[in-house]
Computed example of a mutant assay.
Amino acid sequence: MHKVLGSLKGYLKIQDIHTDNAIFRLHNSFTTVLLLTCSLIITATQYVGNPISCIVSGLPVHVVNTFCWISSTFTMPDAFRRQVGTEVAHPGIANDFDDEDAKKFYTYYQWVCFVLFFQAVACYTPKFIWDHFEGGLLRSIVMGLNLTICTKEEKEAKRDALLDYLIKHVKRHKMYVARYWACEALCLINIVVQMYLMNKFFDGEFMSYGTRVMGLSDIPQEQRFDPMVYVFPRVTKCIFHKYGPSGSLQKHDSLCILPLNIVNEKTYIFIWFWFIIMTVLLCGLLVFRAFIFFMPKFRPRILHARNRMIPIETCRSLSRKLELGDWWLIYMLGRNLDPGVYKDVMGEFAKQVEPENQYYHSK
């Protein structure tokens, strides 16, 4: 297990060339590792030990365990608010009186490990798409100038080559920024869709799961209605039918303990909080992108904040002359180039590039 989890460290390794931002990596790398780790832990817990243990008399225990695991178990929702030990044996466990409509069935626990795996794949998809679109462009034009471990002559040659690329490829990076921002928007769509689907997966209980858990601290112990026990019950019921010696149909009502739900309830409370955090961060990120797109007069300040060695006048000149795609490329270069090299390249680039963005100038 340690070796399997250790293999996930590769997703979290520090990049020497950054083609995206920190929030994008949190969604694509950290969230992917988080979901894969949860999936592996639940899978190991499920197959190491007994994921379900049913109490039934007159029948082989392993038969009932297998049947209840592959079919479903249920609770009585109205029994969760009754007093345990006096009115009911366990939270949600009461006589059903053959009322099928009053039962709440649980079948999700068979699928949790698989669902988490496919969620991890969905979270990694925007990075996969962006890496395909980006194609190593930044790495190829940086040419190792992020480290500057080279001779002075080699550094100057690489700097001239970078400047030559920027001048010759002005107005050719519209799709570069559009595809990256689309991948950022895809991250938010992915998180929102996943939260919606998880809510459907848990019969409408996921969206309010975290807030209800947090609200427990303000409720007296004797009045508490634990949402974790309601969504992930530790004890459920299962009905097993078989034919008796005379051919009559016999009904066996059994209690089933689900130790796996102890892991599930903690896993999903963490996932709920993390997905809420990611939703807020990604919404803020898209608002910031809209700010850059619709208010170009603030681009010089953003560019200057990236590297304060560059004079604000140079930042204004570049932002006025360049379209958004070219501006975004030099902004990302500021994250990857040595500050001194970046200052020299941007200063020379501002002198040689011709004005392109008349719309900005009119602002």
Rank of each mutant, 00 (worst) to 15 (best):
A89T: 10
A89W: 05
H90G: 04
P91R: 00
G92H: 00
G92R: 00
G92P: 03
I93P: 05
N95M: 12
N95P: 09
N95Y: 09
D96Y: 02
D96R: 09
F97E: 14
F97W: 14
D98T: 08
D98G: 08
D98M: 12
D99Y: 03
D99E: 06
D101Q: 05
D101S: 13
A102R: 12
A102C: 06
A102G: 12
K103E: 02
K103S: 02
K103M: 03
K104Q: 11
F105S: 14
F105Y: 15
F105I: 11
Y106W: 06
T107E: 14
T107G: 13
Y109Q: 14
Y109M: 11
W111D: 07
W111K: 12
C113I: 02
F114D: 08
F114G: 08
F114C: 07
F114N: 09
L116Q: 11
L116F: 10
L116C: 15
L116T: 06
L116I: 04
L116G: 09
F117T: 03
F117A: 09
F118I: 10
F118P: 04
F118Y: 14
F118G: 09
Q119N: 13
Q119W: 06
A120L: 03
A120N: 04
A120H: 07
A122G: 07
A122I: 05
A122K: 09
C123V: 05
C123E: 05
C123R: 11
Y124Q: 10
Y124R: 14
Y124M: 14
Y124G: 11
T125I: 15
P126I: 01
P126R: 06
P126Y: 02
K127P: 04
F128H: 11
F128D: 06
F128W: 14
I129W: 14
I129V: 15
H132Y: 15
H132C: 10
E134V: 00
E134Q: 05
E134A: 04
G135H: 00
G135N: 01
G135P: 04
G136L: 02
L137N: 03
L137S: 07
R139E: 08
S140I: 01
I141V: 15
V142P: 11
V142W: 02
V142Y: 02
M143Y: 08
G144Y: 01
